[in-house]
Simulated assay, not measured.
Amino acid sequence: MGPKINYEALDDEALVKAAKDGDMEAFEELVRRYSNLLYNRAMAFVREQDTALDISQEAWVRVWRGLRKFKGDCAFATWVTRIVTNLCIDYVRRLQRNRNLSIEALEEEIGGVERLVDPIEVDPLEGLTVEEQRLVLREALGQLTEVHRAVIILHEFENLSYKEIAKIMGCSLGTVMSRLFYARRSLAAAVREILRKRNEK
């Protein structure tokens, strides 16, 4: 019987290699290291604990099934984040298909929510409490398309670089920058419209 392996001391590359060879303890260490990352990423998208848990667990199932195909072209953390992000985007798409009028259809009909409000120079969230800002932003994020919502969350809230987002979403840097530009514009317009409606009440 060989010496006991200290899995916590191994880097991700060594753990992945061992897990590919069937070492479940190595895989369990990877799960321990990144379970919070996957759960928090799912929560950022769906904002429901049970749903986020289901999505993160499904992500780990897919990680295990696809582990032998992982070639190490990117960091393990980037790879698993891409998996959970794709699951979150799929979940949001399913929700949108069940809506009577999707955000995309609304934009086609009226030209986009950003056309409904006049541009303003001041910060629309100025003067609100932190909790009020959080609630307004959450409501506004829910009005974005799933792709715009994803890029906003990854860049503005998760502080990922354009390059990291491009890897996760499987697109070019130029596409990320374009999506982020339009996502920010739509988010700002949605925030202003939400505040306008609240002020009218």
Rank of each mutant, 00 (worst) to 15 (best):
A105I: 14
D11T: 10
L10E: 05
C74T: 15
L95I: 12
V117Q: 04
T78L: 00
T51S: 05
V63I: 07
S102T: 14
G111T: 10
F27H: 02
N86I: 07
R41C: 10
V80T: 09
D73G: 12
D23S: 06
E25W: 15
A19T: 05
I89W: 08
S56P: 02
L106Y: 14
E58T: 15
E109L: 12
E107W: 13
R99A: 11
D73N: 14
G111K: 08
D12Q: 04
F45V: 04
R32N: 10
G112S: 03
A42I: 00
A42P: 00
L38N: 05
G111F: 08
I110F: 15
Q57N: 10
R65E: 14
E114S: 12
W64E: 04
L30G: 01
V46P: 01
L53W: 11
A18K: 09
M43N: 04
K17E: 15
Q57P: 05
E58S: 10
E13G: 03
T78I: 04
V46S: 00
R68I: 11
L10Y: 01
L38P: 02
D73L: 09
I103V: 14
L67A: 06
G72E: 10
R33N: 06
E107C: 11
V117W: 07
V92P: 02
A9V: 07
Q57G: 08
V117M: 05
D73Q: 11
L10F: 01
W79N: 01
I110P: 03
N6D: 15
R97Y: 13
V63A: 01
R47V: 00
F45N: 01
N6H: 09
E58L: 06
A52S: 04
W79Y: 12
E108I: 08
L10R: 04
R33C: 03
A18P: 01
L116I: 08
T85C: 02
A44H: 11
D54P: 04
E48C: 01
L106W: 11
R82A: 14
E107I: 08
F76P: 00
N40E: 14
D118K: 14
E114K: 13
D50A: 09
G2S: 14
A9Q: 12
G112I: 02
A105N: 15
E25H: 14
E13F: 09
M1H: 11
N36G: 10
V80D: 03
V92H: 10
E114N: 12
A42M: 02
A9S: 12
V61D: 14
T85R: 02
L38I: 05
F45H: 08
